[in-house]
Amino acid sequence: MIVPYGNVLLLAIILFLLGAVCSISRRNLLMILIGVEIMLNAAGLAFVAASLKWRLLDGQAFVLFIFAVAASEVAVGLALIVYSQRRTGSLNADQYNQMKG
């Protein structure tokens, strides 16, 4: 007996929302990316807890895939950030408003 299942899920949702708030309120592209990483991590935590609850290894397998997705996302995302910084000299997300309708 560790803790109730709901407590772990609550921790996961707190983490997820912290990441979401970070992504939304920060203007720095790097911080937005960090927020995404936190959210992915929170999803992983929920998966691990569910895997333990139902005694199925599938949950852990999915965490592995989340890691893969996070790694490639960070690689491409950071490359994009470097690229756009080279183009505009800024990391402010709101400077990229060329899609304004």
């Binding site: 992504s23 309120s25 997300a93 709101d94 899609m99 304004k100 309708g101």
Partner: peptide, 14 residues
């Protein structure tokens, strides 16, 4: 509504 600002879109998402 389409400001082209990333932060607006993200707020809408949340």
């Amino acid at each position: 509504w389409t400001t082209g600002r990333l932060s607006t879109y993200l707020k809408m998402l949340l």
